[in-house]
């Protein structure tokens, strides 16, 4: 099992940073709310990958990193449900899923 993985965690960490940056970039640049939600998911998954990597390479006996990763998946799903439910209501009201169109309240 171990032999399938490389000896140091750097490649995993680099990938996780890349994923996080991609998520951040998406969140910052896209105006479609669905895309922003996807960006958030990416950021969450980068963290999950980090946890797994550290847990594995530090040979944590409690597997706390693994547990954390599973928890992240669960909570990410819950968050997506909430976000999409509200987005649905917004779409029904305004026929749009763009952030520009949900700026009634300001000042």
């Amino acid at each position: 099992m171990t032999s399938l993985l490389s000896e140091n965690p750097n490649s995993y960490l680099i990938i996780s940073v890349l994923i996080f940056s991609a998520g951040m970039f998406t969140v910052l640049t896209r105006k479609n709310i669905l895309a922003i939600i996807m960006g958030i998911e990416l950021m969450l998954n980068a963290s999950a990958l980090n946890f797994i990597t550290f847990s594995f390479f530090r040979k944590s006996t409690l597997y706390s990193g693994h547990v954390f990763a599973i928890l992240i998946i669960v909570l990410a799903a819950a968050e997506a449900v909430v976000a999409l439910a509200i987005l649905l209501a917004i779409f029904q009201q305004r026929k749009s899923v763009m952030t520009d169109d949900i700026s009634d309240m300001k000042g």
Binding site: T29, T99, I102, S103, G107
Partner: peptide
């Protein structure tokens, strides 16, 4: 400050960053 509170989500994120 109120003009910053524009209601535009993306702008908020840029402000924060």
């Amino acid at each position: 400050m109120q003009t910053w509170q524009s209601g535009m989500l993306n702008r908020y994120l840029y402000y924060i960053l």
